[in-house]
């Protein structure tokens, strides 16, 4: 149990996917201008990342590893994740329209996000078992949500702040992200991880 907690917090804070590993930065800057879009994106990431890391773990360990076809994992993961998200979208549209509308455009958008593929790869590189890889993907997606929602709060304030013209928009966003990244470095070595 303590091992699972360790995996979760390492992924959630210490190796935060956005602020420490610098993966998925496109969505980090793209949809963080407003709080509600960043919440929509976060929910889509949590949903898609958990499901896709489960399915890619199964695909890797039941199909690719026994046949010694590990080199095919990029192609296979992309194929499985893309089809799966399509399937989820179809299902949500029919069964839970409210959730479908809440996630909206972010569900297909996040499918091609590098963070999703990175988590599938990393879980295999760390040689996690199924439960561990599920906890890991929850930790990563939780860390993503934490970082992007905090960032959206800051950006909503900076949008109104009297910032010099040449720093408005993306420049100040990058500076903000760098400062947040520095703050997250403070979590290094926490809990002895």
């Amino acid at each position: 149990m303590s091992e699972l907690l360790g995996i979760f917090f390492a992924a959630f804070l210490i190796n935060n996917i956005l602020l420490i590993r610098f993966i998925a930065l496109c969505s980090f800057f793209g949809v963080s201008t407003k709080l509600d879009t960043s919440i929509g994106m976060s929910s889509a990431v949590i949903f898609v990342m958990t499901v896709s890391s489960a399915i890619s773990w199964i695909a890797y360990n039941t199909v690719l590893a026994p046949l010694h076809l590990e080199f095919l994992r990029t192609a296979v993961f992309i194929l499985t994740i893309a089809s799966l998200v399509q399937l989820e979208e179809l299902y949500l549209k029919k069964a839970i329209p409210a959730l479908y509308r809440a996630m909206g455009i972010y569900l297909p958008l996040i499918t091609t996000n590098c963070a999703i593929l990175a988590v599938a790869f990393l879980a295999i590189d760390y040689k996690y078992n199924f439960i561990q890889s599920m906890v890991y993907s929850l930790g990563v997606s939780g860390g993503y949500s934490l970082a992007i929602i905090l960032f959206a709060y800051v950006r909503e304030r900076t949008a109104l702040a009297p910032i010099p013209k040449w720093f408005q928009g993306y420049p100040i966003a990058f500076i903000t992200a760098a400062l947040m990244s520095l703050a997250f470095l403070g979590f290094t070595r926490m809990f002895g991880l």
Binding site: A59, V63, L64, L67, L69, L72, A75, V76, L79, T80
Partner: peptide
């Protein structure tokens, strides 16, 4: 052959 089969089948 195996890789073609696996990818084709999955697809």
């Amino acid at each position: 052959l195996a890789s073609i089969m696996v990818l084709g089948l999955l697809g």
